[in-house]
């Protein structure tokens, strides 16, 4: 069974999904970070695939991606690292990258390699629904890789329903119309939007991402969805730290600690 399916059967609230950029801060930190995130209590992990032109990402993820590429990151390195991580952990792994990387590698070749390396899901923010249905869906289904789509405060009801029908993994509820890496208080307007999406009773679990950065925003997001995704805040916590294992543990602990 796909590890994501198993996870969502066993747990349906307070799911913590942590994003990190593969190959950052050092090329060989990927396995350590996956293992430590798992041990410290992340329920699933989003492995950012560094890309030269990440148009949906803010400065933090852009810079970590550039650093990873300078470190020598390639898809071959990534798949080797995932295989190694899989010898130690069964935590669900979702790859998040851009469609050009998949196209250039070869769509089927990429999905097959990802699956064999131990990935369970895929998020390609610039793969449109129409092209997904035409060119990609049958490949993802063949290899049992779950594909997640994003919805935003401006996504129409009709389109949310369409995405609800197509998403095989969880639904990524983008908290505000923005690129990644913003933080701050969750506003009432955002809460209303989360509640509106929750009321649709979509078949998939919903995880809220973009702007979730600490215990407080994580808890708030979990009130309106099955869990939340933290990315840029974790990348910032890794910056300048030599002991990435300790930095990872400390970060997850800080997110999971009870909020007064």
């Amino acid at each position: 069974m796909n590890r994501l399916t198993k996870l969502f059967r066993e747990k349906s609230s307070d799911l913590l999904n942590v994003y990190f950029t593969a190959g950052y801060p050092q090329l060989n930190n990927t396995v350590t970070i996956i293992r430590e995130l798992d041990r410290a209590g992340a329920d699933l992990i989003e492995v950012g695939v560094p890309y030269s032109d990440p148009m949906a990402d803010g400065e933090t993820i852009q810079k970590s991606s550039m650093k990873a590429l300078q470190n020598g990151f390639t898809l071959k390195v990534l798949f080797d690292q995932l295989r190694e991580a899989r010898q130690h952990t069964e935590v669900p792994l979702v790859l998040m990258g851009y469609f050009n990387q998949v196209m250039q590698y070869g769509m089927e070749r990429f999905v097959k390699a990802a699956k064999e390396a131990g990935a369970d899901g895929l998020i390609l923010p610039d793969l449109p629904v129409f092209e997904y249905e035409n060119e990609f869906k049958h490949i993802a289904e063949k290899y049992d890789i779950q594909v997640t789509f994003l919805i935003t405060p401006n996504t129409s009801q009709q389109r949310i329903e369409q995405i609800g029908q197509l998403s095989t993994g969880f639904i990524y509820v983008v908290s505000s119309s923005s690129i990644t890496g913003k933080s701050g208080e969750i506003t009432q307007a955002q809460k209303d939007y989360f509640a509106r999406i929750a009321a649709l009773n979509l078949p998939q679990p919903r995880l809220i991402g973009f702007g979730i950065s600490d215990a407080k925003s994580f808890r708030t997001a979990c009130e309106y969805a099955n869990g939340a995704i933290i990315g840029s805040a974790f990348i910032r916590a890794l910056a300048g730290r030599d002991d990435v294992a300790a930095a990872t543990r400390e970060f997850v602990e800080s997110v999971l600690e009870p909020v007064a």
Partner: peptide
């Protein structure tokens, strides 16, 4: 149009 959902509307 290979764009993130945020640009779709």
């Amino acid at each position: 149009a290979y764009i993130p959902e945020m640009l779709h509307p």
